[in-house]
Design a protein around this nucleic acid. Structure first.
Lengths: 333, 333
DNA sequence: CCTCGTCGATACAACGTTGTAAAGCGGCCG
DNA sequence: CGGCCGCTTTACAACGTTGTATCGACGAGG
């Protein structure tokens, strides 16, 4: 409630002198500094961030644009971004797009150039190239999809290689009818994981059969269950499945169980994201584990550098990943 | 980038007239309105929310203070609050306290009175009465803990009754050694759920045995697993367990499975929160289902009314809940 | 004809902050 | 002694917006 004016009046100095003390300006007479500091604590002064940012031309806000918080991967990531942003004195505005292209467009448009210093975007429906026109002048860091051709900063793992490693692991178990769940017409990461899947099969000399690749328009548990049900209904059902995220995998495990298919004995399952849910499920999930903390940190750092120097060339940061082998691919045959 | 001034220059009218058009003021000559609207689209004008709020004395921001986004209940709730706030033209600032008392204090203090119009707080470590001193003048709505004696708006379900219903359900299955996981020294909701647990046992004429009540200092899967392990190690292990949230229940199911205890045959499990994870787990979880959408809506509405009229008497809103019976308590004996 | 009320537009100030310019006051050097 | 430089403080403007006061025009009513 107290403003600089109030503090200045109490201390008997000008508004600007108080501002100088607050901002740590060096040349203030000790006597005055003391009186100002007293007045500061006496009034319980807190700067009005909005006014400060208006004057400075910064907002102090960063938008984190993601499909849905109920997806554990995004919830975990959001938590980590919150932490990383705090270190940079950024507040985070989380926006859910619900996976629709319109949602992503509206979000970026409504935030406007004034509300935020920049955005970290995890695109789903939106195609990457749309961003140039949608967010003119807003510094954007993209997560996940790797699109080298675009002049936009980007953070993510090597999806092709991660998928290849995951499927190679299934191959190593001796499985031969390895399915994939999560193909998607517009999702860049889906295409890359599919490519890794095909590469691993090729490396092993296994045929790539289209009827073993299941599409999932969303990446929720329900979609995984439905896709798995379709796959299991085939004449020659798969003996392993690579799911493009852990939620799909959880759904797949559920669908298998309901049909009496044992995991991993009859069906080995690999997920993606290493969500905590997969470390307590029955069975626990083998999964590709991206370093989420590294992703969050890199994204915030990249955005900071972009804001400070809008002219710098776009950067593509590769974060590490590992394969966590758990019960869903252990034992059986 | 374009400001009212730019638009005004282009349309050949005053800044205020443009402002009037933007804000839907009625008395603008059609001719001028047309020209302004043209200039508006031509320049792609977007209001500077910060400046507007500075002038209006409001920030347009609402803080949602919660322990952790990785807890699915909070992630789901956050998503719903985001939606409800959007309808009121509020932006949401999500703050994680990580469950520490300091985190909750720092958060509220650092946001300051200027940053936000109000806060929706889901307290964990913080005792409710602290809020008066911490957030002087900030409208606060509390979630979860029901503390009628405090002059603070509050939204939540009847925890005592919800717990009673859950445990009564276990009693109805014929279970007699019914344990509870989630007792906590400082958490109000924990005390209430424990009370409901005791009441249900009393109603059924069953003894309340302290060795069947397990404390959980956090409400994560790990804590549930550890508590269940302790309970199962007893001479007379329980044949049912009521967990104070779904994560604890998931951990409990896992711990049971690792010891060869079958759910629900040997051990019936009830959770709390109705997170989606529990609808796909093996087995699916019987759980108390609070109406999260209603909670989110009520909280935002309550905050709106509080902001508009700071003097009104505090209100306590009871939101409905139901018991979702699933596999973890079905069949067996 | 004068007044009054409605409509339409404008100038100005203000929200709280900080950058800029400038002024006052010494002291130091030429 | 005059001028210059460094310290310290201040007044002022500006960020972009909107509330208030004001002003002019116009039509209706006395």
């Amino acid at each position: 409630m107290a403003t600089l004016k109030d503090v200045a009046a109490l201390a008997g100095v000008s508004v600007k002198t108080v501002s100088n003390v607050v901002n740590g300006y060096a040349f203030v007479k000790p006597e005055n500094r003391r009186r100002v500091e007293e007045a500061l604590t006496a009034t319980g002064y807190r700067p009005n961030i909005g006014a400060r940012n208006l004057r400075r031309g910064r907002t102090g806000f960063l938008a984190l644009v993601l499909p849905e918080l109920v997806v554990p991967y995004f919830a975990e990531l959001a938590g980590l971004v919150l932490g990383a942003a705090q270190e940079q004195e950024w507040n985070v505005l989380i926006e859910q797009t619900l996976g629709t292209r319109e949602g992503e467009r509206d979000t970026l448009a409504s935030l406007g150039p004034h509300m935020i210093d920049g955005a970290i975007v995890s695109p789903e429906a939106l195609e990457a190239r749309d961003f140039g026109e949608l967010a003119p002048g807003i510094p954007v860091v993209m997560l996940g999809e790797h699109s080298v051709d675009l002049p936009i900063d980007h953070v993510g793992i090597d999806n092709v290689e991660a998928a290849r490693v995951a499927v190679a692991h299934l191959v190593g178990l001796g499985r031969t009818r390895i399915a994939a769940i999560g193909a998607h017409p517009h999702r860049g990461t889906a295409a890359q994981r599919l490519e890794g899947y095909r590469k691993a099969l090729g490396d092993a000399g296994l045929p790539v059969r289209d009827d073993l690749v299941a599409t999932a328009l969303n990446y929720h548990r329900r979609d995984g269950a439905e896709a798995m049900a379709r796959l299991l209904a085939a004449d020659e059902p798969p003996d392993a499945v690579f799911c493009f995220n852990d939620l799909l995998a959880v759904g797949a495990v559920r669908a298998a169980a309901e049909r009496g298919v044992r995991v991993p004995a009859d069906l080995a399952v690999v997920g993606f994201d290493n969500t905590e849910e997969g470390t307590y499920s029955l069975p626990t999930l083998t999964t590709v584990a991206p370093d989420k903390a590294a992703i969050a940190r890199a994204a915030v750092d990249l955005l900071r550098r972009r804001v400070d120097d809008p002219g710098r060339p776009p950067e593509h940061v590769r974060t590490p990943f590992s394969l966590e082998v758990r019960e869903s691919t252990r034992g059986g045959a």
